[in-house]
């Protein structure tokens, strides 16, 4: 049962990725701008330009270009970056871990903050504190990630400098990482000095990404919790003498996470999209930051690779959310 539905999802995922590839490929070639023009030295002869075009396969027809590209992608060859002159897959794999660490750290912070505020709001329901929490959350809900980023730069960066504002690690630290997962690796290898430095660097972009998601989680989760709290099973548990805290955490929360979870999944894909601008603001060396450079340089192979990676991330997230929802909801699990 579950194996079949996972297989179905994987097929759908492959088709989706192919669709993404087609759209990006066509879009990039329809919009104005010539990657070769960005590369050539002034005064290059038409013959030089034509040679360069032929070298990158840009002289073929559009479907032919797509065919060549798709074939090599399937073989694991994403091409060579035009602006960085390096293998695209290598570039992506070098940068992706930084973005994954950033996104997951932001997700964890958002779940913790959003969940805690939702539980607190449920505990103080029907007191004057509840509308206060709702109102503040409602205002913050309207603030997008890049505004958070700028506000954080201004207050926690400039007025009271607490955390570093750019980069991923202090460049003066001796770096001998075995993997590109700096945060995880330094923690696992218990190199606390390095870990705290990497963590300090990630705080600001994490907050900028996590706070908008946290407000959404609070909103949805609190609503679901309040709905669960008036169910008969909560009433019966209360009659058995369960404390309010336990009623919320043990009885209500498990039934409330379902709706909150699927929405968090959708919002998490937005968060991954948000890394593009937030990484730029904090000069964080992830694939989001790389994407902006790639677009500026009209680096077609790199853009295509980046978009495919983002597409794959979105698909994986959605699949993970569905599996998690099934794991948490016994009714879905037993079909």
């Amino acid at each position: 049962m579950i194996a079949v539905s996972i297989l179905n999802r994987l097929i759908v995922a492959a088709v989706t990725l192919l669709g993404v590839a087609v759209i990006v490929f066509v879009l990039l070639r329809v919009v104005p701008g010539d990657p070769i023009a960005m590369m050539i030295a002034p005064g290059a002869s038409p013959a030089d330009i034509a040679a360069l075009r032929a070298r990158y396969g840009l002289d073929l027809s559009l479907p032919a270009q797509f065919g060549v590209w798709l074939q090599s992608v399937l073989m694991g060859d994403f091409g060579t970056s035009i602006s960085l002159r390096r293998d695209v897959l290598e570039l992506l794999l070098g940068r992706l871990p930084a973005t994954l660490e950033l996104a997951f750290a932001a997700l964890i912070v958002a779940l913790a903050v959003g969940g805690a505020v939702a539980v607190a709001g449920t505990l103080v329901r029907r007191t004057p504190l509840e509308p206060a929490i709702d109102a503040i959350n409602g205002v913050l809900l309207a603030v997008p990630d890049f505004v958070w980023a700028l506000a954080l730069v201004l207050f926690v960066g400039v007025f009271i400098p607490v955390f570093p504002l750019s980069g991923r690690i202090d460049p003066t630290l001796s770096i001998d990482f075995l993997t590109p997962f700096y945060l995880l690796e330094s923690l696992v290898r218990f190199r606390l000095g390095v870990f705290f430095d990497v963590a300090a660097h990630i705080v600001m972009p994490v907050l900028a990404l996590a706070l908008p998601l946290a407000t959404v989680i609070t909103r949805i989760l609190k609503e679901a919790l309040l709905e669960a709290m008036v169910q008969d099973y909560v009433l019966l548990a209360r009659l058995k003498g369960m404390s309010e805290m336990r009623l919320v955490l043990q009885e209500a929360l498990r039934n409330a996470v379902g709706p909150a979870l699927s929405l968090t999944g959708v919002q998490f894909t937005f968060l991954v999209g948000g890394t593009v601008i937030v990484e730029r603001i904090f000069a964080y060396p992830g694939i989001g930051n790389m994407a902006i450079d790639a677009v500026i340089n009209r680096d077609l192979p790199l853009i295509q690779g980046l978009v495919l990676v983002f597409g794959a991330i979105f698909i994986v997230i959605n699949l993970a959310v569905d599996l998690l929802a099934a794991a948490l909801n016994p009714r879905l699990r037993h079909g």
Binding site: D232, Y233, L235, A237, N255, P330
Partner: peptide, 20 residues
């Protein structure tokens, strides 16, 4: 409540926690 006085509720659909 819940020890000397107990309740049998009306609707068995909603009176048991679906997640436990």
């Amino acid at each position: 409540m819940g020890s000397e006085i107990a309740l049998i509720p009306q609707d068995p659909q909603t009176a048991l926690n679906p997640a436990r």
